[in-house]
Amino acid sequence: MRRNWLPLLLLILAAGFTPSTGFASPATFVTALPVALDQILARMDANTSMAASELEYAQFPVSVALGATSSLALFVTFQASLTSLKQNGQISTSSGMNDTLVFGRYTLYKKDWPNGTLRLAPLAGAYLPSGSNTLSNSSGLLAGPLQTGTGTLDPYVGLTFGANTARYGAASDLTYRWNPAAAHGVSPGDILRADGEVERRLLPVHLPAEGLPKELWFVLETNLIKNRSGKLDGRPDPNSGGFTWNGAATLQLPTLRWELGMGVLLPIVQQFNGTGAIRESKGLITFFEFYLSAPSLSGVRRKL
């Protein structure tokens, strides 16, 4: 069975979404991060808008992953954000916790060889409604980008793929988030997202014969995001949904116990439904992740 559908999935991933990635360290998505049994991965991101525009933001996602077995990793991502929107001479702001993403990823297929690997892993989970979709001010409900949640439990599924060597790497994911309509407030539509990443080691140019060198990697990423039309107080909202395509370039310093990355996020295409579209400007992305050994329960989990 696997031989029948695996090439098709690989082809879809390779054809549809620019580059694809292995379990490397993409800056704009966390689904492909590598996690071993009894390992904890903690990652802190800081994403901010760089240029003055109608929409300015600062987002601080914190992701924690645990290797529950050698194949199953559990992820949780909390996010706090601060957003400011300038429209018609008025400035509206919002801040607070966003919806919380919880998902599990199971490595379904892997091919390992010296200094290289290829992985394919489905994932499933949900966004928990820890944010709010009914934030308002004296003028009424705040616009969609200022809301911090959807107000509902949103199922989330996807597939992630990665291939890496000591010099090059690539990763991708394809995810879908169902956003059921809430009776009140702003309800965004479902989100189909495809992320891709390619990376190349810049330094050292040649690996030393012995030991672990300090490395510098250059990473290019792309995010294709299709938002379906949403609803407003339970009624269809024609001025919602659309398509965005972002690109990102980062420099990353990986070590044995931590990794640091910094770069820029560039909106390439922003097409929105209806009128009154709110466009994002370029952003600055920074992340720091570190790895810990978890208390062991492996005697139980190895049997899973």
Partner: peptide, 27 residues
Amino acid sequence: FSPRSFFNILVRIDKLPGVVRAKFDLK
């Protein structure tokens, strides 16, 4: 394929009785 990959192994080595040191060679 990278230094961080070795941490995945280090987590397991930490739980291996009697091992006193480990040598990681990426190349």
